[in-house]
Each structure stands twice: as structure tokens, then as C-alpha cells.
Design a protein around this nucleic acid. Structure first.
Lengths: 240, 240
DNA sequence: CGCTTAGTTGATGTCACTCAACCCTAGTGG
DNA sequence: CCACTAGGGTTGAGTGACATCAACTAAGCG
């Protein structure tokens, strides 16, 4: 059940069997969330650390005018709030975008895992540092890339991140997000996202039908988006 | 000399005298950088951890068309690359924007400090998590705020961050950045930044002359920018 | 069958970009 | 002392990318 978590963390450090076992034991509670249900609200001090096992969730902030900015997509294997205990209250919310199953880990357990295994500790910190790197790349996109490049870049990122947890066989992956949700993450309007997606389709880069994206021309899409996978820091860690 | 560092970290955790001493001892090397000199280049694996003691530096990424996106302003007290050892090579560069003095700490020393003092460890991680929170807030700005709000927001942020290290007495602070550099950080053109700044001046929110910013109407500026200081997580940690 | 949600399309508006000129100040060198 | 230069800031006119508003289609579902 927690396989995506393990699959992801293996990119960060070469986990031993006992590491993986310990991690599995720490997931005390696994729960399903409905689409659009909040996992953690802004301002909250969550009792548990959460990780996505299935479905898509997002970090987001609301604006006074009712607008929403999505700050990150959380796909299976991603942690929601690994280090809340250090910062105190959440400065943003986490929302299950689609129906999702999410597991909870007591913060003390995380603490115990980290101090017991240096590799596991390293893997966990690796995950949060990669989150930060992704945030930086998004900032580049919003600041300096055109709308079509930015959307293309996001598709590239999702492809690689999902592939990292074996969820994108043959460059196809489930895409449960609506265009409006996509828009909230790239800072565009749904209407404009729609036009951009049509361009990408017309250029032969990808198909997107019935909740499934097929990337037809991966090198082309990446070149167009100016995508450099380095920021995902995904080279698989070799065994210890 | 390393006082800004200590001042900043005190917001993250209640450092003891010995913590502060240990930190001071770890700063083996202090060096001045010229304006526009790179501290660390993208792709590099730095030998040391760096922290800004004086001047302004920035994280940045270059784009194929020669454009630049600034990802963060590093002011006195900020670390440049605390955890490079975990991620491997830098996925962005660090550049001294003004003449700056920057200290270097061997990664092993950071390791030693962290394992020796839980509070210091906590303070260091607090600093990197705040960096991430700032990044999120910038993303909100680029995605959903108007140009004038976004620039106003940045002034608010600089004010509070500099105040946190006692560098903004009476709501005035040194502003050594050019409008072009500001533009690279908010994703606008220099020309447009200029017009926006003039608006902020005309509205009576601030003055900016001769490299010094004076915030005249702090509550007004913050309201206009939709600024909520929470994301800086700056409540001063009480003594242990 | 009507209702809802997501996607699509067109017409129009506007914010920020581009290009270009000009100003001001500080620094430099004759 | 003054001409010259260079960097940063300021201003204006024209353009374009993306937003806004509004209508329409298609698919799912009671």
C-alpha cells in the first residue's frame, strides 16, 4: 500500500529493507478523502504528518478576492507537511483534488525514524528539498516563460514525477485535474489554459482525452518547454 | 561579525550562548565579494556552506534567451546553500548583487553543530523551511497579484526580514538593488517596475531615494499588498 | 428529460511589454 | 573647470498576450 512512498524515497537515498519496513510500520492510519476535501487547512497545526498514496492533492493559498493559487501538485509518494512541527502553524492549505487515499504518521514516529536511520533521514530531507526545487522552477515559469511553455513544462514535470513512482508507463498517465485547476496552478485563466492545451495538441506533443494524457513527442515537448529534469534530482540512488 | 546570522536564527529557536559560540567558531572563512560576482554557479558542488553577513545576494536561474529569474533575495543572516550535500549539485546559482561579505562553513561543521545541539539543528532547518515559505508567497504574487501589489509585497517582505536582523530602524532600510534587478525578481520589465514604484510613491506608501527606502505608511502598504507576515514565521522564539 | 460540470469558441478589453528617446548624476580625464 | 561617458531612472507611443464576458456544446446523471 505504501509502495509509492518507498518508490519515491528510493530516489533520495538507498533505503535498506529495514528502512522500508520501519516506514511502513509508521503509517498508522490510512484514510480516503473525497474530491475537494481539505486534508489540512491554512492556520492549522496538524497532529500528523501526511503522505499521498493515491490520487492528486495540492498545496494552495486563497486570496482575499476569492482567487486561489495552487503551489504544488502532490502525487502518490509525496509528503504534505513533513516538518510542520518546526514551523508551527501551516501557512497554506492542503486539499485532495481528486478522491485520494492519504496516510498519516505521528510526528514522533518521523523523529524516531530519522534518528534511527541516517539514510532514511537523508531521504526525508531530500524529499523536502526537492519540493523547494520544484517551487523554484515554477517561479521561473511564472516569471519568465510564456503561457504555452509553462503549461508544457508542467506536463513534463508531471510525466517525470509520476514515472518516478511507476505511474507513467509508456509516457501515459492519469490526469484527473480539470483545466480550471491547472489554471489555478499556472496563474492563467481556464479559458487561456484551454487554448494553450489545444496548441500543444495541435503541435503533436500530446493527447489528453478522458482523463488520460499521452505524451507523443517527449523530446519535442521538453525542448519546447525548455525543460531540464535536473531540478527534480531524480537520479536513482545506488544501493549502499 | 556573524551577528546577523545569530539574530536571524534566534527567530527560529532559542539559541544558547554556547550555540552561538559554536556557530561563530564554525565560520572558518569570511570573504568579500564584488558586485555581480558569483558565489556559487549553477551545476557546481560547493565545498562550503555559505551565509550572507553583509550586502545583498540572490538566487537565480538563467534562461536560454538570456533572461534571468531571481528566485530569492539573500540578506544578512541568510544561508545560501545549507543542504547542498543532500541534493548534490546546485540547480541554480547564487550571485552577490552588491558588494557583500559572505562567510563559509565546512559542511562537516554544520553536521557537527546539528548533532551536538538540537536547538541549533532546529534553527537551521527552520531557516530552510522559511526559505520555502517565502518561495510559496512569491509564487502567489506572480500568479495572482497585480504588478503593483506584487512590488508592494516585496517591499513589505524586505522591511520585515531586514527588521528581523535589526537592519531597518524606523522603517528605513538600505535598498542597494536597481529597478532592473527588482524586475528580474518579480517577473516584470524594468520599465514597468519603474511605473509601479512611482505609483507607490505617489500613493504616499514609501520613499526611495539614494539607495534608501523609507516606508511611510506601513499599515497602508501592507493592506494594499495583501501582506500577511505569517509566512515569515518570525515570532521571536522565547528563551529555553 | 432537465440539471450540472467541463470544455470550447468568439468578441472585446486591458495590463504589461517593446522600442525608443531623454534626463540626471557620478565618475573620468583632459 | 568643463567635456565626455556610462549607468540608472523616467517618459511616451504602439503592440501583443492574456483576461474578461458571454454564449454554446458535449457528457454524465438524477
Amino acid at each position: 500500500m505504501i509502495t509509492p512512498l518507498v518508490r519515491k524515497l528510493r530516489h533520495g537515498a538507498p533505503l535498506s529493507c529495514s528502512d522500508e519496513q520501519a516506514l511502513a510500520n509508521a503509517c498508522v492510519q490510512i484514510r480516503d478523502y473525497a474530491a475537494r476535501e481539505d486534508v489540512i487547512a491554512e492556520g492549522e497545526r496538524p497532529r500528523h504528518v501526511h503522505a499521498v498514496l493515491d490520487g492528486f492533492a495540492c498545496r494552495y493559498k486563497m486570496l482575499p478576492d476569492g482567487g486561489r493559487q495552487i503551489l504544488a501538485w502532490l502525487v502518490p509518494g509525496d509528503f504534505c507537511d513533513l516538518h510542520v512541527t518546526i514551523l508551527g502553524e501551516m501557512d497554506h492549505g492542503i486539499c485532495a483534488v481528486t478522491g485520494s487515499t492519504i496516510c498519516a504518521i505521528p510526528p514522533e514516529a518521523v523523529e524516531r525514524l530519522s534518528s534511527a536511520s541516517p539514510t532514511l533521514s537523508r531521504a526525508l530531507w531530500w524529499a523536502t528539498l526537492v519540493d523547494e526545487a520544484v517551487l523554484r522552477e515554477w517561479l521561473v515559469g511564472m516569471g519568465r516563460r510564456s503561457a504555452d511553455q509553462q503549461v508544457a513544462h508542467l506536463f513534463c514535470e508531471l510525466l517525470l514525477r509520476l514515472r518516478a513512482v511507476d505511474l507513467a508507463p509508456g509516457s501515459r498517465f492519469d490526469m484527473p485535474l480539470t483545466q480550471a485547476e491547472l489554471a489555478d496552478s499556472v496563474g492563467l485563466t481556464p479559458v487561456h489554459v484551454n487554448r494553450v492545451v489545444q496548441q500543444l495538441r495541435a503541435a503533436g506533443y500530446l493527447e489528453w482525452r478522458g482523463g488520460v494524457v499521452s505524451v507523443l513527442d517527449e523530446p519535442g515537448l521538453m525542448a519546447f518547454a525548455d525543460f531540464d529534469a535536473n531540478y527534480l534530482h531524480l537520479r536513482r540512488a545506488e544501493a549502499a
